Simulated scan of single mutants.
Amino acid sequence: MTDELAAPTPAEREPVEPELVESESGRSESGKPQSGKSRMRADAKRNTEQIRRAAIDAFRGRGLAVPLEDVAKAAGVSKATVFNRFGGRIGLIEAVIEELVAAELYAIVDHARTIANAGERVAYYLAAIRELQYRQPAVNDVLLQMYPESQQLMAICHVAGEFNAELIAAGHASGELRAEFRTDDLEALVHDSALALKYGTRPPVADYDRRTTFLLDGIRRPRE
């Protein structure tokens, strides 16, 4: 996708230099007082972490399409500094996506695998993913593959897709799920929720949770 911001002009760019490892005492590893250049490099390291933390906060609350000017302002740096440190939006996404999205999504997958009963596993997973989608807008951007140029983002989608197939196979083998309910149906439900939350009117949480129950009732095999 095309970023809404143009790359900074040469005049806007700030020099990017290799960073030095520094001690808290203000001296280099050799014990000599730091030069002005090494202090500048320390500032660059701090700027990089400030941008990373600002991006996590902004993406977590508003999704991955937050204007980069907003991230720069929150970090106390210029837009040119964001481009210099991360190369633009995709580089910034890749710098934070593991902490921002992957950690929580993978934790859901790992916990689901500990649930022995296939029906309970499906119920937990679908409810947990929908709750994460409601709470964390960046998750919807990942699941909708809004930035396919990001290899890390696409890797997260691949992990989710593999687990969806594993989950549906177990649900069929146990007889908990409707025989006609397939992996692509589960993915469509998750994607539909992502689209509704991203572009539609956000429902009250009580209504959203009630609809999760309806979804679960719809995919389970009817009891005889």
Rank of each mutant, 00 (worst) to 15 (best):
Q151Y: 03
P203W: 09
A138N: 05
G161Q: 00
S150G: 03
G171I: 08
A179Q: 10
D192P: 01
D207H: 11
L144G: 12
S193K: 10
E166M: 03
I156E: 10
V142I: 12
D184G: 00
L167S: 03
Q151W: 04
I168W: 00
M154G: 02
P148Q: 11
D209S: 10
S174W: 01
F163N: 06
D184P: 02
L167F: 04
D207C: 06
Q151A: 14
H158P: 00
T183E: 14
Y199A: 13
E180Y: 01
Y199P: 07
H191I: 12
P137S: 01
D185T: 09
A194L: 06
G161K: 00
F214S: 13
A165I: 03
E176G: 04
D185N: 14
P148A: 09
D209M: 07
R182S: 13
H158F: 08
Q151H: 07
D141E: 06
R210M: 08
V190S: 09
Q133G: 05
C157I: 09
S150K: 03
T213G: 12
L153Q: 13
L167D: 01
V205M: 07
F181R: 02
N140T: 15
A188K: 13
E162W: 04
P148D: 11
A169S: 10
P204Y: 04
N140L: 04
L132G: 08
L186W: 06
P203L: 07
A160T: 05
M146N: 08
C157Y: 03
G161C: 02
Q151P: 00
E162R: 15
E166I: 03
I156F: 12
L167G: 02
Q145Y: 04
H158G: 09
A155C: 00
L144N: 11
G171P: 11
I156C: 10
G200T: 04
H191V: 13
E176I: 02
A160K: 01
H191F: 10
L186N: 04
L153M: 15
N164G: 09
E180H: 12
